[in-house]
């Protein structure tokens, strides 16, 4: 048996599209948070590093934070369903290795989600710098940027894979609406409860799809106390939680694909 082809190569037009979205979202963040940011770190945390629990009842901070996930879903939410619809007949009348095909598709999606987050956070730092903001400390800026990018990437991968695997059973639109609605409600609920009391963090940290909010996990001081730490070493917990969740979602997807009827 040879390789199982997925027919995927670097897609320049998709990369340009992601760059365009990144610049647009970064510009929105800079325009929104520049006046209240004392440093690049502040800007990074305000943009996609945290959800302000004191304004969470307006839903706007949650919606703004979720925007990059909507972009990811718009570009990748139907990927596996489309690939199956298009290529499954030719592939799966030649090989039974559906699992290996699905893992390759998951890797493809994951790497584009990471690329998008790198472009988004990179654009935010760049536009912030051009606007005149400086880093309070290069080390902190690095730490904050890496932390935010890592958590958002893992969160994005979890979301995109969940939507894609759910669309093996439901329609792609229904899957997207269900998962994104759940994420919106989970973040809103978590934010609202944290506003009442940070003691809720112990329970809330287990709620799926809320671990991507760096500011709810990190204990880092940026000079203006932008980051509220609810649990000392939460970033590591959030990262591990999401890695385990991604593995669980992947296992469910693998189980599903082997039994899937291809119409």
């Amino acid at each position: 048996m040879g390789l199982i082809p997925v027919g995927i190569k670097w897609d320049i037009s998709l990369l340009l599209k992601l760059l365009g979205w990144s610049l647009l979202l970064a510009l929105l963040s800079v325009l929104r948070f520049y006046p209240s940011s004392a440093s690049l770190e502040d800007l990074m945390i305000s943009a996609y590093g945290t959800i302000d629990v004191y304004a969470v009842q307006t839903v706007i901070p949650v919606f703004m934070w979720i925007l990059p996930f909507l972009v990811s879903n718009f570009n990748f939410g139907e990927h596996i369903a489309k690939q199956l619809d298009r290529h499954a007949v030719y592939l799966f009348t030649r090989t039974a290795r559906r699992k290996s095909w699905l893992v390759k598709q998951a890797m493809y999606l994951s790497h584009y989600v990471i690329v998008f987050q790198l472009l988004l956070q990179g654009s935010t730092v760049l536009l912030g710098y051009i606007s005149g903001l400086k880093a309070a400390s290069l080390f902190t800026l690095w730490e904050v940027t890496i932390g935010i990018t890592a958590l958002l990437s893992l969160s994005g991968i979890l979301l995109v894979l969940t939507i894609n695997f759910l669309s093996l059973s439901l329609s792609a639109v229904v899957s997207s609406v269900l998962v994104l609605s759940y994420q919106l409600i989970a973040l809103f609920t978590a934010g609202s409860l944290l506003r009442v009391s940070t003691a809720y963090y112990t329970q809330l940290k287990w709620m799926p799809l809320t671990q991507g909010v760096y500011g709810w996990q990190a204990s880092i001081f940026t000079g203006t106390e932008k980051v509220k730490s609810y649990l000392g070493d939460g970033v590591r917990f959030a990262g591990c939680y999401m890695i385990v969740a991604i593995i669980v979602v992947l296992l469910i997807g693998l189980r599903k694909i082997n039994r899937l009827d291809i119409y």
Binding site: M1, G2, L3, I4, P5, G7, Y90, L91, R94, T95
Partner: peptide
């Protein structure tokens, strides 16, 4: 290339 990719499965 399309056929080559498909043929590579059974080789």
């Amino acid at each position: 290339d399309n056929l080559k990719m498909l043929a590579s499965i059974k080789n």
